[in-house]
Write a protein that binds this DNA or RNA. Structure first.
Length: 351
DNA sequence: AATTCGTGGAG
DNA sequence: TCTCCAAGAAT
């Protein structure tokens, strides 16, 4: 049997169910692929279902408020995906009469649509013979062909191999999803189950015992670590939350205000300095707790302090809106994980 | 071209 | 605890 025949036979036999499998609505296929970027299937499923309930089509997504969009994405990470997806939906409503462009060049112009999304949506939704290349596929093919250069310098070899293999496939979407399922379930990063792999016969890495070495990857740089003070600024029964700038890290998300602690600086000194720079004066404070959080390129250690507000309006170049809210109201706002960790400690200690 | 974008799970 | 990395794209 041929490579693709073995692969697709295995795929059909697995019959793995996902909410978007078998879906024909391009909008839903597209949404699933956006959510699945750098995110595991299991994580995406509840977010996908919730999103489809709230925004069942392009128009509803385009008409939603930014707050609703980010709230539906809260906790999923890489929030620019949500903002870009809505931007693209608005673009489709205004410039494409509400219909997703079926032309590759036009679809690629949409925000958040790259080579992967194009290939995934057009192969699964339209039957186009465009191979997808994601982390799974890179791993599977680099092992299958025994590619011993750094994985990202082998992309042309991987693509030319797939371009040939997908030509004689009847259902390109199945071929692509089979490749990704195989990488996720069998050809795993560690301890691949080569014994049950449908394409192990011609796999170079398997035959030569190289599955532990391939794919070859560069070592990641160490990420910096920062200490921060975070304020739960109390004013009567309310506390302050701030909306981050729409660009950059956690764009558009709400958070508890705070800032970095300088080296050799005490927590209380940092607390006074940061909020003095924000333009608000505080009095007595009490320690709430510490919450660590790891981002992709740095990590933080948040030291939370509950403070009593005296006067001043918070002005920060990092934020565009400020709001005093009562405890419990935070569920109405899209708030990032790091702030949620401290809010959880607030509940434990002060209810 | 290298960096910047979250969060959670696996081992 | 530590490291890797997941249906990548934008800058």
């Amino acid at each position: 049997m041929k490579f693709s025949t073995r692969l697709i036979k295995w795929y059909k036999n697995q019959n793995i169910l996902m909410p978007w499998r078998g879906e024909k609505d391009l909008y839903k296929i597209w949404l699933s692929e956006v959510m699945l970027q750098q995110t595991q299937v299991k994580t995406v499923i509840p977010y996908y279902k919730n999103w489809i309930n709230k925004f069942p089509n392009i128009k509803s997504a385009a008409l939603a408020s930014e707050k609703e969009i980010l709230k539906a994405w809260e906790g999923l990470g890489y929030y620019s995906r949500a903002r870009n997806f809505q931007h693209a939906c608005k673009n489709i409503v205004s410039d494409y009469n509400g219909e997703i462009p079926l032309n590759e060049i036009e679809f690629l112009k949409l925000k958040g649509v790259g080579e992967y999304i194009l290939s995934a949506v057009f192969s699964i939704g339209l039957g186009k013979k465009l191979p997808v290349i994601d982390g799974n596929v890179k791993r599977v093919i680099s092992r299958y062909l025994g590619l011993t250069n750094e994985i990202n310098s082998e992309l042309k070899n991987i693509k030319s191999f797939l371009d040939i293999k997908i030509k004689d496939v009847k259902i390109p979407g199945d071929f692509n999803q089979a490749m990704m399922d195989l990488g996720r379930i069998v050809c795993k990063p560690k301890n691949p189950n080569c014994d049950i792999c449908p394409i192990n016969i011609n796999c170079v890495a398997f035959k030569q015992g190289l599955t532990q070495l391939i794919p070859i990857k560069l070592k990641k740089k160490q990420i910096p670590h920062y200490k921060m003070i975070i304020g739960i600024i109390q004013n009567n029964d309310k506390f302050l939350i701030c909306k981050r700038n729409s660009d950059g890290l956690l764009g558009g998300m709400w958070e508890l205000p705070g800032g970095k602690i300088k080296k050799q600086e005490s927590n209380s000194t940092a607390l006074n300095r940061v909020f003095s720079d924000f333009g608000i004066s505080l009095k007595s404070n009490s320690y709430i707790g510490t919450a660590n959080h790891i981002y992709s390129h740095f990590s933080i250690e948040q030291h939370g302090y509950q403070c009593d507000y005296i006067k001043g309006n918070l002005i920060s170049k990092n934020h565009t809106e400020y709001k005093w809210i009562s405890k419990g109201e935070e569920v109405l706002f899209p708030i990032h994980k790091a702030s949620h960790k401290l809010l959880a400690k607030l509940k434990v200690n002060y209810t």
